[in-house]
């Protein structure tokens, strides 16, 4: 009986040990994960600054710029012609 009691007491202590180790591991893991995430984001933003969006937007944006320029040129020419005719 006495021995059984002793073992059961150990069981609760065992439970607390589990809790300490478990919560410790979870927090350490997530803590390292947070640090790793921050490092990863910094590296990616520094060395690979948005490669996907940039690659995909740079091509259309340059196109769009060209079109914009063309439009401006067309607008300037038509204005000049108008001015010339009126003048």
């Amino acid at each position: 009986m006495h021995k059984g009691n002793l073992m059961e007491t150990n069981l609760v202590i065992e439970g607390f040990k589990f809790m300490g180790l478990g919560m410790g591991t979870v927090f350490v893991f997530l803590g390292i994960m947070i640090v790793a995430m921050n490092i990863m984001s910094t590296i990616i933003h520094k060395f690979f600054p948005e490669p996907q969006p940039k690659a995909s937007t740079s091509a259309p944006s340059s196109n769009a710029k060209k079109q914009d320029n063309n439009k401006k040129i067309v607008a300037a020419i038509t204005a000049a012609i108008k001015h010339h005719r009126e003048g």
Binding site: V12, G15, F16, F18, M19, G22, M23, V26, F27, F29, L30, G31, M33, I34, M37, N38, S41
Partner: peptide, 19 residues
């Protein structure tokens, strides 16, 4: 990233119940 800690704290339910 720091909200990950909240996901860790909630695991206290597991170990608290274990005890």
């Amino acid at each position: 990233p720091k909200t990950a800690l909240l996901g860790g704290a909630a695991q206290f339910g597991i170990f608290g119940t274990l005890v």
